[in-house]
Write a protein that binds this DNA or RNA. Structure first.
Lengths: 193, 193
DNA sequence: TGACTGAGAGAACCAGCGTTCTCTACGTTA
DNA sequence: TAACGTAGAGAACGCTGGTTCTCTCAGTCA
């Protein structure tokens, strides 16, 4: 089996298990069973469990942000794009197996003891925050708004994860609309021409 | 040593260690060392680690909500009380050893495998949400606002915990003010008399 | 005084798990 | 065909940690 193919299988298994059950609840043996990659090979690909966790979080970060961006880019209106973030959250929350934000969960589990996990969580949230800033910049709205939207989105992820309330994303979107209107009122769009 | 005194010492140790390092990173032996209560006594007080975790989360829930309510009640103005929630978050975030929300962290760590922890986290968040509803009811503002404020507060806890950004609570408070104004505009206070 | 109860200290037991090692078998090349 | 390198299966190792057991001792009551 090709090295890259094996790597992909291992990361697929890691993502399913780590996200679904938590990192410490999953043993390297479980990864082996689900991926079909032998322990020996597994340790050739990832020297320690910590490295596997890091690779899992890195790959998921790229995928998560790509999926979000792809959805947002289906919308042409700069302000609509901001709202589209919350539409995408709603889609995500509704996916089978949704269990909250992988980075929030990992950070809660290992943030205090694993610098690797703490760093990955911080990077992911910073990247998401910067992405929201590109959206508010694109709509000529103040960056304060991006900060507020970040809080709403994070709160929605947590609340949807713990409470599983079905209307959480819609609630966040409604709040986002109100904040967007407030921001538009204080800083109207650049004059045409 | 009196039973209740020993129980208090154990829970003090549990709270310090579980909150600071995560639940799975702390062994019963660590609890014994810090509390000064022997393992035998410890297991007489809490039959299993799971029961100790439950008692820790229950006691912390009562203390956390009491401290919040005490701060909020220093303010007489119904709308000011709503803002006071975010003032209190700012105080909390600034405390030494702050490491995010104990329930969000516990849920991330054990929510998928421990019904005890999942239940405690859900209960705590529901109680906090209901408390916010009493505040919006008291200010004659719609309950939608309470839901939005919950998302902001949860998002602030997560963001302050992971990013440690010092301005997070102030940002959440600013967003809360905007949402409160929006809500007041659509549903003005009940007519006097 | 002498059996009994309860407490503390710490060893012991047992299971889980990260990591490594052994054994076997198969494909490749001279 | 025969030596060799590599891979897989799974046992083994060592450590951690939840839980229980043992031993000792102080205090109590007949």
């Amino acid at each position: 089996m090709d090295r890259e193919v094996a790597r992909g299988h291992v990361l697929d298994a890691a993502e399913e298990l780590f996200y679904g059950k938590g990192i410490q609840a999953v043993g390297m043996d479980d990864i082996r069973s689900l991926s079909g990659v032998s322990l020996k090979r597994l340790y050739q690909l990832f020297a320690t469990k910590d490295r596997l966790v890091e690779a899992y979080l890195e790959r998921r970060d790229l995928g998560w942000r790509r999926r979000l961006a792809e959805h947002v880019e289906t919308c042409d209106d700069p302000e609509g794009r901001i709202i589209a973030v919350f539409d995408w959250l709603e889609l995500w929350f509704g996916e089978p197996g949704f269990r909250g934000c992988a980075w929030i969960n990992s950070y809660g589990e290992l943030g205090a003891t694993s610098p690797t996990v703490a760093t990955q969580a911080r990077r992911h949230k910073q990247a998401f925050g910067r992405y929201l800033e590109t959206l508010t910049d694109g709509a000529h709205l103040p960056r304060d708004l991006a900060g507020h939207l970040l809080l709403l989105a994070e709160g929605a992820m947590v609340t949807a994860g713990i409470l599983g309330a079905p209307g959480t994303a819609a609630q966040a979107r409604a709040a986002a609309r109100l904040l967007l209107e407030s921001a538009r009122r204080t800083r109207p769009p650049a004059p045409a021409g």
